[in-house]
């Protein structure tokens, strides 16, 4: 399964980057979403996946009786999801404000601050 996921995640990265390279700012922000999702999945997958063994300690016991899924990457991904949520909400609103100010969905019209 990990191999299949690795390929899928590769595709997610590819789509994310393709979207980010478009001229539309909306596509850019969708690309960013895909990208952060892909990264989260990558952490989750690379640490190894396990079916049907959530990292919970049964009631009344001190430790799980059998092997459970690695809880640490789950915690990391949870943190990463939340952070990505914050950042992406910001980005989404930024895109919208940028559109209101520049009045164009075209990134090529947003290059006045350089050069």
């Amino acid at each position: 399964m990990e191999s299949l996921m690795a390929v899928s995640i590769g595709v997610l990265f590819a789509t994310a980057i393709y979207m980010m390279l478009r001229r539309s700012i909306v596509k850019l922000v969708i690309g960013l979403m895909l990208l952060s999702n892909a990264a989260n999945l990558l952490i989750f997958t690379t640490a190894g996946m396990r079916r049907g063994a959530p990292p919970l300690v049964p009631e009344g016991l001190g430790a799980p009786t059998s092997a459970v899924a690695d809880p640490l990457p789950q915690a990391l991904v949870l943190t990463a999801i939340v952070i990505a949520f914050g950042v992406l909400s910001f980005a989404v609103v930024l895109v919208r404000r940028a559109w209101e100010v520049v009045r164009a969905d075209d990134l090529d019209q947003m290059k006045d601050t350089d050069t």
Binding site: I25, V87, A98, T113
Partner: peptide, 15 residues
């Protein structure tokens, strides 16, 4: 306006 334009690049590349 310049802030918005600059911010889009800043945000994207830093992300």
């Amino acid at each position: 306006k310049p802030q918005m334009e600059g911010a889009i690049k800043y945000v994207t590349l830093n992300l």
